[in-house]
Design a binder for these strands. Structure first.
Lengths: 345, 345
DNA sequence: CTGTTAGCGCGTTCAG
DNA sequence: CTGAACGCGCTAACAG
């Protein structure tokens, strides 16, 4: 394996000249540069990443902490893919640190090894000790999600408020007045899982703003519970004409319960999935109308935000909230009118 | 940030003694070791990964090349998660290299930077130039999947033959004689995508071995095409009583077409999904019976196989084929008998 | 525009 | 059992 010394010798220059020819940190006579590049090419030289990192005190590695035990699915996959690509295009490597939120100690130790210049944190909770650890270790980071205090901590997140506003307005515009919300589980809310907490709040707010009564339920992430919860909702409010769900798995149960009651979608009940992974809409019949998570965009933004902290030359990236994007399906339509719901004349 | 020199000074020993206390490569008097550990602890010392790698000429990093453009989903996610965890537990870091199969040059360059001690390759094709590049660069690797020549190249893979044998025997045992297979797309087969090619061959073989006529179709990975292909299959063989599908997305279309024709599952037609991601079965109604990909196990095995090459002290891990595991659902049952299919008396 | 050289932090001979 | 010293391959002063 060729080293920079080999290249220098082959090109008849000093090692520093080769180094500068590579980094461009100081001007090199074109003719010299040519000789160097030729030598690098024939020797198949690639700078040793470890030596470079040690000398420059920058590893050009960013770490992604992801807690999803048992795999990365759907939205998270899209996110990770986008992060890896963006990092690569910026000349960085992405390492995966599979740690749960309570393994802050392990995270600190890894951070101290200085293998990563910065850290990306997925699934940040409202109260997240990992943030404290990283700040104490003075490791640059960017959160995907937000802690409770929306302080000046670098983050990117889904804009749950605007997403929910769009969802509710859309349904209200179609004449719906009795709209229910199927959330993630109570446990997740208790654990301070941001999407669940923020969406629930946003739903209540939007409904109230429209003069409507919010009806929402927590629900374990499974078709079975989705079905049970739907049954409960229909029993609670027989006048229900629309269901907003941010629980992908439960949504399959929603469809099943409606079908078993002979209720048509969207004739009797409209269903709108929010914060979904891309493509899930097509898995159901009729195709679910969704507002899917901007996973890829969040991934790219997160990398940009982190890199802007690592490299002062880059333009700073402010915290951003990205709304989910509407992916039309066939599951929403006008509210049915043959019911005892107050209608405008 | 504390260095090994700080620790040595604090403990009143030389740096080499600290180094040996950490690596255990040579005996240290217990009392000395204690002082060293105490010093490391109070200083919060963690060895600098870059310096360590440079000096030891081992990065303790393995790279995972994954081609899935636009994200890691389902099975792949489970696999990546397991790889990351296993690597971490073995004291290795996992870096993600998002490259398509045709970007062998980029892979070679990264390999030459010596950032990774070894490489894991997902979605290996029958003819895969990346393998040649890695072998030329003398970088240890393990394939997930297999090239055409099942040579002595380190690999782990799904046992498509045994999986398909189980699937077909099971259905035959239930009286099915007219069984169809819904594969991945023709493009993927043309590209030498191992799972599609090997499963197709295995299906034909199993059917023939049972004295039955194999009926199989390629199908783009989408519910829409799955539906079209199902229609074609039913028209081609009205006596069809079972469908084996290894195309997760298409399976939703299979269900839809059967439903639209008023055919019940499994009363009229049994459906068995093979090589699926975990949990997809529950998304359908009736729940799909599946044989799901052993993604997590493959991930762990792949890491073990690679690490056994990196560290001669480890026991070698032979190439292994892991069958998919049956996940019972409600989509298969006895073949219907009111048809013109030859039955035993 | 180019060369010389002192580290970066740690592993690992070689002496003791 | 311990310490001194060299080198891993490269970056970045400093010196021309």
């Amino acid at each position: 394996m060729a080293t920079i010394t080999d290249v220098a010798r082959a090109a008849g220059v000093s090692v520093s000249t080769v180094s500068y020819a590579i980094s461009g940190a100081r001007p090199i006579r074109p003719e010299t540069r040519e000789r160097i590049h030729a030598a690098m090419h024939t020797l198949g030289f690639q700078p040793n990443a470890m030596a470079r990192s040690l000398a420059s005190r920058r590893s050009r590695v960013i770490a992604l902490i992801y807690p999803q035990i048992g795999g990365i699915g759907g939205t998270a996959g899209e996110f990770v893919g986008a992060v890896a690509e963006r990092a690569r295009d910026a000349g960085y490597q992405l390492v995966l640190w599979p740690f749960r939120a309570d393994q802050a100690d392990d995270i600190r130790n890894l951070a101290r090894q200085r293998m990563a210049d910065g850290v990306l944190l997925m699934e940040v909770c409202l109260d997240d000790e990992r943030i404290d650890v990283l700040e104490a270790a003075e490791v640059p980071y960017t959160m995907i999600g937000r802690t409770r205090d929306v302080a000046d901590r670098p983050s990117v997140d889904i804009d749950f408020a605007s997403t929910m506003a769009t969802a509710v307005s859309h349904l209200v515009g179609l004449g719906h007045r009795h709209i229910a919300f199927v959330n993630h589980s109570a446990d997740q809310i208790k654990a301070g899982y941001g999407p669940a907490v923020r969406s629930a709040a946003a739903f209540d707010e939007c409904m109230t703003a429209h003069g409507l009564v919010p009806l929402s339920r927590t629900c374990d992430d499974s078709p079975v519970m989705g079905r049970a919860v739907t049954a409960d909702l229909l029993d609670t409010d027989p006048g229900l004409t629309a269901i907003v769900t941010m629980n992908e798995l439960a949504t399959f149960g929603v469809y099943a319960e409606l079908a078993s009651r002979g209720l048509s979608i969207p004739g009797d009940v409209s269903v709108l999935g929010v914060v979904t992974s891309p493509g899930v809409g097509t898995l159901s019949y009729p195709p679910l109308t969704t507002m899917h998570s901007p996973g890829a965009e969040l991934g790219r933004l997160a990398v940009d935000c982190l890199l802007s902290q690592l490299d002062p030359a880059r333009t700073p990236v402010p915290n951003q909230l990205i709304p989910c994007v509407l992916e039309p399906g066939m599951s929403i339509g006008p509210a049915r009118t043959d019911q005892d719901v107050p209608q405008r004349p």
